[in-house]
C-alpha cells in the first residue's frame, strides 16, 4: 500500500486537534480503510485516552526510534475496528526524544502498510510541531471561531507553506449557530475569507463530545447521529474525495423559539 500522511495541527492548544484526529481516524476505519494514528505530542500524550486505548500501551514512538521494540509491537489495535491502530507518544520523555528524520522514517514505514497515517500535532510551533509536520504529505488545520485561534491558524498556514505543505484545508470547530445568528460569533464565510484557505468541514459545539471523551469513545461511533458525529462523517467522506455539501447547522425550530423568548 502507499498511503498518505496527514498532520492535524492548529498552533493554538485546546481547539480540538486530538478529538478531530480520533474521530477522523475512526471514521476512515469505518469505511474499511487501513488507518494508523500517531500521537506526536511527546510528553503530553492524549490521543490514547480520547480513543479509550490507554490501558493497552506497552511501547511507544520513542521505543520505536530507539529500537527497544519493532514498529509493529508499538502499534495498538483499536477495540472496535481491526484496521485502525495507534502509535502512542511517550509520556515520560520530551520533544527532543524523536528527530525530524526519525519521524519521516516512521511515517514512511507506516504509509507502506496503511491508507492513512494521521499525525496528531502538539500545540505550538516549536520542535514538536516541526517534527510532527516533517513526515506529512498534507495538513488539516483545526480552528475555532475566536480571534486568537484564527490568528494562530494563519501563522501555522504560513509555516506549512514554507515547509512545502502548501494547500492545507481547515476544519472550523465548536461553532455555535445561535451565537452566529445573534452576531456574537464570526461566521464561516468571515473566517474562510480571512484565512484564504479551503474549508474541509464545520463541527458544531456539542456537549455530546464531552460525554464521548469521558467514555473514550469517539463521537463518530455514536449511532444517535448527533450533529457533531454527522459533521465528522461528512469530513471523512470529503477526505475520500466525495463532494458532500456543508450540513445545515441552522437552529431547529424549538431552539430558535427558545432563543427569541430569551430562554436559550
Amino acid at each position: 500500500m502507499d498511503g498518505k500522511a496527514i498532520v492535524i495541527t492548529s498552533g493554538k492548544g485546546g481547539v480540538g486537534k486530538t478529538t478531530s484526529t480520533a474521530n477522523i481516524g475512526t471514521g476512515l476505519a469505518q469505511l474499511g480503510k487501513e488507518v494508523v494514528l500517531i500521537d506526536a505530542d511527546i510528553g503530553l500524550r492524549n490521543l490514547d485516552v480520547v480513543m479509550g486505548l490507554e490501558n493497552r500501551i506497552v511501547y511507544d514512538i520513542v521505543d520505536v526510534v530507539e529500537e527497544n521494540c519493532r514498529l509493529e509491537q508499538a502499534l495498538i489495535k483499536d477495540k472496535r475496528y481491526s484496521s485502525l491502530s495507534l502509535l502512542p507518544a511517550a509520556q515520560t520523555r520530551d520533544k527532543t526524544a524523536v528527530s525530524k528524520e526519525q519521524m519521516v522514517e516512521v511515517c514512511k514505514r507506516l504509509k507502506a502498510e496503511a491508507d492513512y497515517v494521521l499525525i496528531d500535532c502538539p500545540a505550538g510551533i516549536e520542535q514538536g510541531f516541526q517534527n510532527a509536520i516533517a513526515g506529512a504529505d498534507e495538513a488539516i488545520i483545526i480552528t475555532t471561531p475566536e480571534v486568537a485561534a484564527i490568528r494562530d491558524a494563519d501563522r501555522v498556514i504560513g509555516m506549512l507553506q514554507a515547509e512545502g505543505l502548501g494547500e492545507p484545508e481547515v476544519i472550523i470547530n465548536r461553532i455555535r449557530m445561535d451565537m452566529v445568528n445573534k452576531g456574537d460569533m464570526m461566521d464561516i464565510e468571515d473566517m474562510i475569507e480571512i484565512l484564504a484557505i479551503k474549508l474541509l468541514g464545520v463541527v458544531p459545539d456539542d456537549q455530546e463530545i464531552v460525554i464521548s471523551t469521558n467514555k473514550g469513545e469517539p463521537i463518530i461511533l455514536d449511532d444517535s447521529n448527533s450533529q457533531s458525529a454527522q459533521a465528522f462523517k461528512n469530513i471523512v467522506h470529503r477526505l475520500e474525495g466525495e463532494k458532500i455539501p456543508l450540513m445545515s447547522l441552522e437552529e431547529g425550530f424549538m431552539e430558535k423559539f427558545k432563543r427569541i423568548l430569551g430562554l436559550g
Binding site: 475566536e146 480571534v147 484564527i150 490568528r151 494563519d154 501563522r155 504560513g158 452566529v180 445573534k182 452576531g183 456574537d184 460569533m185 464570526m186 461566521d187 468571515d190 480571512i194
Partner: peptide, 18 residues
C-alpha cells in the same frame, strides 16, 4: 455586533503579524 469587532481586530492583527 461583537463578531464584527472580532473580524476587524483579527484582520488588523494578521496584517501587523505579517
Amino acid at each position: 455586533d461583537s463578531k464584527d469587532l472580532a473580524k476587524e481586530r483579527l484582520k488588523l492583527v494578521l496584517i501587523h503579524d505579517k
